[in-house]
Amino acid sequence: MIALGLTLALAYTPAEAQALFTEANDAYYRQEYSAAKDKYERLIAAGQSGPDVLFNLGTTHLAANELGPAILFLTRAARLAPSDDDIAAQLAVAQQRQLDQVVGAEDAEPFLQRLGRAVDERLVSWGFLIAWWVAFGLLFVFLRGSSHRWAFGLATAAVFAVALGLGGLVGVQAWVSTSVKEAVVMAATAKAREFPGDTAKVAFEVHAGLLVRVMEDSGRFVRIRLPNALEGWVEKEQVTPL
């Protein structure tokens, strides 16, 4: 509640937010990347985020050669706007600069995860609600009887099929969102150990910008899994959840 109150107190008016956004852009073009990042982050802290702010913040980090934050914010922007080509292209550029090359990566992440990420959460959610209501409306009309009863029957079945499909996608997204926790490596180099402890043997190293899955946590450490199923424990502060 206190946080909410602070957020509301810090919130900018739309004009102020746009002015701050423009100032940040100007700082970027003057190559004053620290000032630009500070202004973008103030917008995010005020709850006035969105794909555009995240995109610019990620791009600023990328221009400043800070690969970890760049991939973090660009990935967040991409999750909010999956169909945005600019964000996808910028993220691809950042990933090309990444040091780690995961060898023997699984052909693809599990189907449901891919399916859940492939579609726009908003689109699917609203599409489901609309189709769901329309389907029930058609069902009502069908049951009341009319001169085109067969047509209403077919339409009802079709819309029900669409609604159920979309509903399934919403369910998949909800499952992926709640059960699959991802993070980006922020440290320039993070040692992945065989068990959570400073004395544990280092199994491998990962570097800034690598997207990993967080499986569990224990004290100061979290267990990460790479796309090729390689696992290790790294310090929590070395990764940032998406």
Partner: peptide, 30 residues
């Protein structure tokens, strides 16, 4: 690198409909 966005649409970071409180009642209502 792509150019920066010069105008922004500000929104909450996580405004996914299915996370909203109204979503489940609206789904169950029909």
């Amino acid at each position: 690198l792509k150019s920066l966005r010069h105008t922004a649409r500000f929104s909450e970071a996580h405004a996914v409909p299915w996370r909203q409180p109204f979503f489940l009642p609206l789904s169950i209502a029909p």
